[in-house]
Design a binder for these strands. Structure first.
Lengths: 371, 371
DNA sequence: CTGCGTCCAGTAAGCGCTTTCAAGAATTGA
DNA sequence: TCAATTCTTGAAAGCGCTTACTGGACGCAG
């Protein structure tokens, strides 16, 4: 029951014949070359219109090398199939990046070729994308630095949210350190927290590491203590965060009075795990996140977190890639700013007006910059 | 500063030469044809490995017609640029579809080519995708039925969330009517609501229309009244919903005692608009949604809504498309089931356990099927 | 030992488009 | 009016790969 149509597709030959010119001329008209006589052009355009001709992009790609497609590769969690539904929160980050990237691509006349991959098969999957695209955006650590190089030699590459230390590719990432330092200051100076903890994302993530070290360094410089990292290993997911908190509780001893998390998803998991044990947030323990996903302002208590411009990340990545593709100069390492968003989960009193506004405001009104 | 690599890409000719065979043989090995002598195959494979050969997919697409890419086209809101950030909730639907589609595509060895388009330019944008893909999924109404036909003649097409009445393309959609009828029953029979309203999505959406008519028909059959549709026109967005509620309030007269919305996003807008006016949900007015986005269970009061399997929608669409592409028989109109999820915003007492579980449960335990 | 069916692998014809090279047409200046 | 230019257009060579179509090598029945 193959119901694909059978009318043979219109090719450049059909147009040429109809317009009474050669295919070369049609090609020139289509691609807007100069030195075409106006009446010839008119005839060709009419033929194109009448026939409904659309250039075959595969052929175009083959002969000119430009496909008008950029590829975006992101990592899938190793445990895939059943988690598909559970990833809701975890993948919001990727979703936003995709949306931003798609928007920028589209605005520049490109399409976005999506490819989720597990790290195991990433290398070969990506290799086959190099010929289908004009350039590649590789999201956080889908490929180790070492394996990026050969790819980057074939096709322009932008690395998203990595360490920023690639020699072969442009890097686009957020400033993890500044705001995370401010977060530590806020917890210690404003709320007087002394016993802190930092719940990491995946242990090998450069983003998570940068956030952790900025938090720890600032906190310790201010005289607060931060529990050992080994006690607080997460995996970016809510479920993983719950598990980590449970483990920490079983370990016993005094709980920290503030837990900063590497992402909003994990912070939400922590909040739930704590309140399930009857521990009050923020009264007993403050909890903070990172990302500022839409959900963050809707949960109770509203999450104090760090806003990162996720969509912009995708957009900027595409723009940087297009610059590379077109041979335009462009920074080799682009760092986007982040911003502390103070809500209630850190212990700041919920503002009365906030309830009304928070669903549409971006949270700006609530930002406090402790100093 | 074009830093694209310069090592000439490895082609099938290089492999052939290195292995001492013809390019046809290499092609056969790559595509797993039989009747290749084992030692020849071994030699070719070695050459491929040593050279790091990856077939050029443009060339492949040109000569074989199969690109291993499927296109997904979705609508952008007309007002784009500034709304980009505000669309957070609105586009969750699309995001989920994309994720499901990408997953299914990837599982079958395909990539997903994304293309967001405004309706105005949709036709030409889509036309150019036909040659870049093996098949197209068109999301809700990016193209009018009439314009789908010529596209579907060129390439297999699956229509997502449409009316289900296409003659040229396979349709994948959800069962809007059954659950929406149950919702009306629930409001009228369980909660004794008599004066209802239905807040639509975009006025021309088949989904919204189906939901509205099912709701109205069931409610009226049970003796309840439903306010005129003209009073309750929305646009799928929270902001639009707020505006609609404000207009309704200015109009005066008794408010309905229950407002069913065509989506969760709009329901959330309604909840906020009402509580901003001091109207209690659900005590004064019950509010219900449709979609069951993750946010629905986190807001207060938790949203009573209708769960639709959004990711599955994407997945099934891809599977149907692949069936078409491969000439496998497949239903022409696929309808996925929906499910009433009763939470608190309709007036059902919040379950004590629910608070603990709702963030991970799918809501199944909370379903009530009114009889 | 001849004839025919099988296997394997090579030859070559495109797939639809871009682009170089070159030639005929048109224009210009002397 | 004729040569020197400048335009405009066509012919043809690929881009890298798939896939008939071919034909030699081999094996087996007659």
């Amino acid at each position: 029951m193959d119901s694909r149509g059978d009318s043979a597709p219109v090719t450049i030959y059909d147009v040429a014949e109809r317009a009474g010119v050669s295919i070369a001329t049609v090609s020139r008209v289509v691609n807007g070359h100069r030195s075409i006589r106006p009446d010839t052009q008119e005839r060709v355009l009419r033929a194109i219109r009448e026939l409904g001709f659309v250039p075959n992009s595969a052929a175009r790609g083959l002969s000119s090398g430009s496909k008008k497609v950029i590829g975006l590769v992101f990592a899938r969690l190793p445990t895939e199939d059943d988690l598909l539904e559970l990833e809701e929160e975890t993948l919001l980050f990727t979703d936003s990046v995709i949306r931003g990237a798609e928007y920028a691509a589209q605005s520049n006349g490109y399409s976005l070729l999506l490819h989720g991959t597990r790290r195991a098969t990433a290398a070969s999957a990506i290799a086959s994308l190099t010929s289908a695209t004009d350039g590649l955006i590789l999201a956080d650590q889908v490929l180790s630095e070492r394996r990026v190089a050969p790819i980057a030699r074939r096709v322009p590459v932008v690395l998203l949210a990595g360490s920023g230390r690639s020699r072969t590719a442009v890097t686009v990432r957020v400033d993890n350190r500044t705001s995370m330092g401010e977060m530590a200051e806020h917890l210690v100076l404003v709320h007087g927290k002394r016993r802190l903890a930092f719940l990491s994302g995946a242990p090998d993530s450069p983003d998570s590491e940068a956030r952790a070290s900025a938090f720890r360094e600032t906190a310790e410089a201010l005289g607060a203590s931060v529990e050992p990292d080994e006690w607080w290993v997460g995996d970016w997911s809510s479920a993983g965060a719950v598990e980590t908190v449970r483990r920490r509780l079983r370990r016993g001893g005094t709980l920290p009075d503030a837990i900063a998390c590497a992402s909003d998803s994990t912070a939400i998991g922590v909040q739930h795990a704590l309140s399930a044990e009857g521990i009050q947030v923020p009264a007993d323990v403050a909890v903070t996140g990172f990302d500022d996903i839409p959900l963050a302002r809707h949960i109770a208590p509203a999450l104090t977190t760090i806003n990162q411009p996720i969509q912009r990340l995708g957009r900027v990545a595409v723009e940087a890639l297009l610059a590379k593709i077109n041979g335009v100069a462009c920074a080799r390492d682009i760092v986007l700013p982040t911003r502390l968003v103070v809500r209630a989960s850190c212990g700041c009193a919920p503002n009365a007006l906030q309830a009304l506004d928070r669903w549409r405001s971006d949270g700006d009104a609530l930002v406090e910059q402790p100093g």
